[in-house]
């Protein structure tokens, strides 16, 4: 398979890009992938975005045209109060400066995350063992609440009562922990 950019070297970097829910295949040789900003670090297996981001921001500022005209973006004044990273800088580098940046730019990053993560914007994986204490309980609560709904619908009230007890005790535990934190 030849590189779709230069049509000279064989393509060695292969992936699918998702833009607005449309999947596009991308096949590039290493030099072209680098040039286009689709850097894949073979050792860390990383996938960084670079130019992909600037493409996205063009689109963000003028959603109806796919042209390269950059118009004024109202977000450019945003700045992370913890690390000083500005939104413009983030756009240029594609990298955040600190954990707090995720909150600072929260309203801006959904389209980026959707694009890179196949439409996903919310975490659905591991919770830190020690720090995630309350989150573990909350996840368990969510699961039991769903179960409770099911049982009530199926009129299995005896089982539902047991689940409700479990929910109450978890809620109590959660409240105790929250009080402890204050």
């Amino acid at each position: 398979m030849e590189c779709q950019e230069c049509h000279q070297r064989p393509a060695t970097v292969h992936f699918t890009q998702v833009i607005n829910g449309n999947k596009t295949e991308v096949h590039l040789c290493e030099p072209c992938a680098q040039e286009k900003g689709y850097m894949m670090d073979q050792y860390g297996g990383d996938f960084s975005i670079g130019n992909l981001l600037s493409g996205l921001f063009n689109f963000e500022s003028s959603p109806l045209t796919s042209g390269h005209s950059t118009t004024f973006t109202p977000n450019s004044g945003l700045k992370c109060e913890k690390c000083g990273m500005t939104y413009d800088e983030f756009k240029r580098t594609g990298k955040f400066g600190c954990a707090h940046c995720y909150q600072t730019f929260d309203a801006q990053i959904d389209p980026i995350l959707r694009r890179v993560h196949s439409g996903n914007t919310r975490h659905n994986g591991k919770i830190p063992e020690r720090m995630g204490g309350n989150l573990h309980i909350q996840r368990e609560l969510e699961r039991y609440r769903g179960e409770l709904q099911d049982l009530i619908q199926r009129e299995e009230f005896e089982k539902a009562a047991k689940i409700r007890d479990k929910i109450r005790s978890l809620e109590n535990e959660l409240n105790r922990k929250k009080d402890g934190e204050e």
């Binding site: 990383d46 975005i49 955040f96 400066g97 975490h123």
Partner: peptide, 15 residues
């Protein structure tokens, strides 16, 4: 972060 998971410098690794 509860919403975004493990926070990383590059948004391609977050979650």
């Amino acid at each position: 972060d509860e919403k975004r998971g493990y926070l990383t410098s590059c948004p391609t690794n977050v979650g």
